[in-house]
Design a protein around this nucleic acid. Structure first.
Lengths: 152, 152
DNA sequence: TCGCATCCTTACGTAAACGTCAGCTTAGCA
DNA sequence: TGCTAAGCTGACGTTTACGTAAGGATGCGA
């Protein structure tokens, strides 16, 4: 093989430690299609053989976990949301093989749309949380106010 | 009774509509102690009788739902978190009866602590989400960048 | 006081998101 | 080439957060 992109691959246990998930959870996410057949790169793993993950795979998983924890979505909703990542991975792969600028345009536009969707969702959350933060801060201030008027 | 604070009380169905929950969910939240014996005010409802809620109860429920939706906590974690609200309700009740300033101080300090806990949690979330937002925005910009360099 | 919509309790059902166990296979190393 | 830790594939178990259905009680208007 061309030794340039020689990726060290990890097995599921190591990935579990790096991501804070359990092996079972990782397999489950793959099972429901949230993660795509482990090692989206290379040939599609033969039955019974160990899963092999690259650093890129790990980062992808970490991204997904992050979205899972920060937005309160079901794994199914999350699946839809992370089509974006899938699309972006797709792009990175195709970018290396295609040189059709029209096709490139298409792929990039898709990725852009998906990212926009995610961004909208995140921004909504931030807005709502910020509002909540304000209200809580207000109440907190009110508490102090009352304390002063007591000891005053 | 003194007619001044004559509260109109609602039954569970109406509360459900107002909060977007189902009656079952409201009963469930009470069952696990997230909501306290419906109608925390007045006498503790006799077995089999209808639950009665005040506007204050409804607001409290709405607050809890909001926290549930915005932070991604389990109902048990949420229970712990909303001790604050419980404490504050407790305060409002006691404030009307006690005139011991020392006791007042105590109650207010408790409420303040609980609110602080909530606030910390919310702020952490906001921070993380804001970071995510930045990264997504960056990626989005990168997409546009590539588009330009294609058509350029 | 009667009627009936709404509520009550009890209990079993369920979907999502994994945990756990069994029996077997793979793969890195001595 | 043999050993063993780690992984694999079912398959069933579990917890959380409610849904649903049964059978009876409540309570408000006519």
């Amino acid at each position: 093989m061309s030794g340039l992109t020689e990726q060290r691959t990890m097995r599921i246990g190591e990935v579990a430690e790096l991501t804070g998930l359990t092996p079972r959870t990782i397999r489950y996410y793959e099972e429901i299609g949230l993660l795509g057949p482990a090692g989206a790169e290379s040939e599609p793993r033969e039955q019974g053989k160990h899963r092999a993950y690259t650093r890129a795979d790990v980062e992808r998983i970490q991204e997904i976990v992050r979205l899972r924890d920060l937005l309160g979505l079901s794994l199914e909703q999350l699946s839809q949301l992370v089509e974006a990542e899938t699309a972006r991975a797709e792009i990175r792969r195709e970018i290396k093989v295609t040189d059709d600028p029209q096709r490139m345009r298409e792929l990039i536009l898709q990725a852009h749309a998906h990212i926009t969707t995610q961004l909208d969702l995140v921004r909504m959350r931030v807005t709502e949380l910020a509002k909540l933060e304000d209200e809580l801060a207000e109440r907190q201030a009110a508490c102090l106010q009352r304390l002063e008027s007591l000891s005053g």
